[in-house]
Every structure is written in structure tokens, then in C-alpha cells.
């Protein structure tokens, strides 16, 4: 690695001021798993690295009305082990558990995983299916945007120079709703997904029709994808195995995967259908359980 300016601000305002000053010359470092790896491989050579680890107030997990707000500096491991997340959004805890290894989860942060915009990461997929929002701050202001609008291209997010992800807000599941995360790992237990799918299914009071379903896909395009065509098939329909299979087939046509070490584009397309069906099947089962529990 080459030498760079290293800044370690203690407050959000100070951080935002530095980011404003350096613009696109600066890179934010939190856990560092992504940035240091890229710097070691010469894929990034920033003039300034701004460590936000010491910034106060970005490390909390809290219940707000109807959602859970997770500070950007919360590590994957903290999210995975958080009793609040485990109890209220077990699918999210499970998704964080599926990221790499515990060592990496101790370092990598929730905000960092979003800002990195790697289409092979696990958490963005589930956050997208859960319709989470990303809080972004810059000197003199902030904005919140849906996760579904946050990813623009391969390793490219909606963040502008000077902006920082400060939190993600995840709505709790409505009644009679189940959620699932399926990570297809055909090689080894520690790998990026060949295909990843997060799904939610909300049942109508009759317990048989689907009020709403959400499907998000990872590792099948240059960004995580929300698969609305397949969702539309399910919305209002009476659920059954054949329908879930049809949703899988619909999803397959929407993806545009890359050939890589985890599978050819053709294989990933086929597996998208299989994994969407599996994720929906799990989410549906969870939804029935949730409906029974509340009914």
C-alpha cells in the first residue's frame, strides 16, 4: 500500500467536514475489510482515509416505531447477535450470520456493507426485501433513500462525494408475514453466494392468498435486484407450489448475471429460479406460522 493521510474524527460533524474537504479523494473506513483488501490489491489508492470508528453515536441498534434502526458502525457480528434483531427480525440476524466468517463479521459494519455496493454481499439483499431505508448525511444536510434505490452499478452506490451512510432503518414485518434468506453455496461453506435470495410473504386473513410478496436477489447482476415481476405474480394470488415455481421462472428472466468462479451466467440464471422458489417456500411456511401464532 502507498502512504495516505489518515484522519480519525470523533464526531459526525467533524467527519462530514473532512469528507467535504477531500471530496472523492477520501475514502471512509469503518471495519476496513473491503477497503484495506482493495488497497492491498491496488484497486483503491485514496489520498485520504477517514476512519469513522471513533465517531460517537453511530453504533446503536434501537427499536423505533415499527422499525429497527441500526447504526452504520454496528458490526455484522453485533447485528447477528443482537437480541432485538434476533427476536424481531430473525431473518436479518440469519443473513448477517451468513456473511463470511466470524472474524470478518467482527470487523465489517452494516454501513460499510452498503457503501461498498458489492453485488455479492448478503445483507443488502435481505435489507432490500425488507424495504429498509438508508440514512445518508453530508455537511449541512441529510437524506434517506430506500435500499432498492441505493445501488447504481457494480461497486457503485448512490453516495455522492462528501456523503456518509449513518444508519439503516428496517421496518418490522407486518402480521402474517414470513421472511427467508437463501444463500446457495455449492463449493465451500465460506464463499460468496452463487445466487442469494431474500423473500417475504404476507398472507391475507384467509391464510391462503398472498397479500404481498417481496423478492430480492444477490450475485445475479451488477447490483442487488428487487424482482418485482415475480412479486406481482404472487400478489393477490392463492399460494401453491406451482405458483412459487412460476415465480422462480419469472425471476430467472429478470436477472443478468456475470460468469465468474462461482458459476456461469447460464447456471446462475437457472439457480435463480430454484432459489427463488426455495426462498418463497420457506417464507410462506414462516408466514403460516406467524398467522397461526397471531390468530
Amino acid at each position: 500500500m502507498i502512504a495516505f493521510d489518515y484522519r480519525a474524527p470523533r464526531s459526525l460533524d467533524e467527519t462530514l467536514a473532512i469528507l467535504q474537504e477531500y471530496g472523492d479523494e477520501a475514502r471512509v473506513i469503518a471495519g476496513g475489510t473491503a477497503l484495506v483488501t482493495m488497497m492491498r490489491q491496488r484497486l483503491a489508492q485514496p489520498a485520504c482515509v477517514v476512519s469513522v470508528r471513533g465517531v460517537a453515536g453511530l453504533g446503536r441498534i434501537e427499536a423505533t416505531n415499527g422499525s429497527i434502526r441500526i447504526g452504520a458502525l454496528v458490526t455484522h457480528r453485533e447485528a447477528e447477535c443482537s437480541p432485538l434483531i434476533q427476536e424481531r427480525l430473525p431473518v436479518l440476524a440469519e443473513t448477517f450470520r451468513r456473511v463470511g466468517t466470524i472474524r470478518i463479521r467482527h470487523m465489517a459494519t452494516v454501513g460499510g456493507a452498503l457503501a461498498h455496493a458489492d453485488p455479492n454481499q448478503d445483507p443488502p439483499v435481505t435489507l432490500m426485501a425488507l424495504d429498509a431505508g438508508v440514512e445518508v448525511q453530508r455537511a449541512g444536510g441529510g437524506r434517506e433513500l430506500p435500499v432498492a434505490e441505493f445501488f447504481r452499478d457494480y461497486y457503485e452506490s448512490a453516495l455522492e462525494p462528501g456523503e456518509l451512510v449513518t444508519a439503516v432503518t428496517v421496518p418490522l414485518l407486518p402480521a402474517a408475514t414470513g421472511a427467508s434468506y437463501v444463500k446457495f453455496l455449492p463449493r465451500t461453506a465460506d464463499d460468496y453466494a452463487t445466487v442469494a435470495v431474500a423473500a417475504t410473504v404476507t398472507l391475507e386473513p384467509d391464510g391462503e392468498h398472498c397479500r404481498e410478496a417481496r423478492i430480492a436477489l444477490g450475485s445475479v447482476a451488477t447490483t442487488p435486484l428487487r424482482e418485482r415481476a415475480a412479486e406481482a405474480l404472487l400478489s393477490g394470488a392463492r399460494l401453491g407450489e406451482r405458483l412459487l415455481k412460476a415465480a422462480g421462472s419469472a425471476a430467472k428472466t429478470a436477472v443478468d448475471p456475470l460468469d465468474d468462479h462461482r458459476g456461469s451466467a447460464a447456471y446462475k440464471r437457472e439457480m435463480t429460479a430454484v432459489m427463488v422458489e426455495r426462498a418463497l417456500t420457506q417464507a410462506w411456511a414462516e408466514a403460516r406460522r406467524a398467522a397461526r401464532a397471531s390468530g
Binding site: 463449493r187 465451500t188 461453506a189 465460506d190 464463499d191 460468496y192 468462479h261
Partner: peptide
Amino acid sequence: STLSLGDFKLPTIRD
């Protein structure tokens, strides 16, 4: 193209 142990995969303890 598999120039790291992230891409050239060896069996892990769970495999």
C-alpha cells in the same frame, strides 16, 4: 483469474 484464496477455494472445516 482465481488469484486469491477467496476465489481459489480450499475445503473448510465445515466441508
